[in-house]
Write a protein that binds this DNA or RNA. Structure first.
Lengths: 209, 209
DNA sequence: TTTATATTGTGAATTGAATATCAACACTCA
DNA sequence: TGAGTGTTGATATTCAATTCACAATATAAA
């Protein structure tokens, strides 16, 4: 049963919940109604114990004979990770990567969508790119305030990273997903996720050695 | 002192080493020759203790008065994460994201480069895209064998993910960087890194709630 | 009914990573 | 010289995440 009190879940569990949900949608489409921990684990490349632990943490119970009811589980995950009214995101930096992420993401989730993108190139601003309105970065603060934006995706050049990050924090952004190669510092209370392609590849290169 | 024996480093440390090196290149360009743990920590958004512990793990020693010698440190990191002869990568799936990653990555690292990209669209194959030769996916196995490729970046559509991953494993790939939204399962001994944009954003959305 | 089998749920143990603490050392300045 | 400062390197501690081990339960089969 979902409590009204705020659930303090491990970060890793939250990530997996997002993925459980996506996989479970597929299962629903294939006509499945119930699923066992070992089935879900197999699909996610995890152990069954870990799946059960995650579901225990969100307070969902299955049955020993039928496993978990997919529909209910999906609904509960939604209750935990979606916000009721939905949540809008902005993306800053409409280069190759920004454009790719924008078109990739658009329409993927109904409670989470890119409301606008920003760039400093006047050639790109004040028009629709990849289906989303593109504004000049000088309008970030005003837009964030008006639309109550809390999350920003950062895909600008390394040189511009600090300055744009500062603008975003100044505008009141609460979470930044940083895809640039520049490590960021954020104040207490602001959430930051960093994913750098070069780092990932160098890590893999080390591991396969 | 770098040993010849294989160093078993924590994954997180390897990631940070990659980033230390990139930041240290900048410092060298600015004319710095030495650096203290607290300086490096500040630039990386870490604690000095963590920096020192990482360097301790790779067996690098600084001096109490001058800190670390940047040039030597960079060289040692290279010794640990680069392979001597360099390492070639392939990328499969030349959609928006594949193209973005290819142009983003090309030229970034000299010991690590994208040797070829693959797609199943005949419109894209047998020509140069983003500066890299693009072949049809039916040639993956042959190419991997001939060029001794160990790492692949996966940016295909969700529907194609399983099939292409199977091809890559079959071809003898040792590490996969999976940017699709489909979680993969790989056999023992194969390294997998997964980064899904939707998951990252949903995690952020949860955190800012 | 009884036994066997397969599943969930969870306390306890283990592993892994980050942080705190501090001795040892090098330099500066009185 | 000797006190004071700032640094590294290393051990100990804390914290987070995963895995182990198994009790409890439901179903099917004998």
């Amino acid at each position: 049963m979902a409590k009204n009190t705020y659930l303090e879940l491990p970060g890793k569990t939250v990530e997996r919940l997002s993925q459980y949900r996506r996989i479970l949608y597929n299962s629903i489409n294939e006509g499945k109604t119930n699923i066992y921990s070992h089935e879900l684990a197999k699909m996610m490349n995890l152990t069954p114990v870990q799946v059960r632990r995650d579901l225990m943490l969100i307070g969902y119970s299955g049955s020993q004979s039928k496993g978990y009811v997919i529909k209910d589980l999906v609904a509960l995950i939604g209750k935990i990770i979606d916000s009721d009214e939905g949540q809008d995101i902005i993306l800053v930096g409409m280069g190759n990567l920004g454009r790719a992420i924008t078109s990739y993401f658009t329409g993927k989730r109904d409670k989470l969508s890119i409301a606008a993108v920003f760039d400093n190139d006047l050639q790109k601003t004040d028009r629709i790119i990849a289906g989303i309105p593109c504004h000049h970065i000088s309008h970030i603060k005003e837009f964030v305030a008006k639309e109550n934006i809390q999350i920003a995706v950062l895909t600008v050049s390394p040189e511009a990273t600090y300055e744009v990050a500062k603008m975003l924090l100044d505008a009141g952004i609460k979470g930044i997903l940083n895809y640039t190669s520049v490590p960021l510092t954020v104040p207490e209370g602001i959430h930051l996720e960093e994913y750098d392609i070069v780092t990932s590849l160098e890590k893999l290169a080390y591991l396969v050695k």
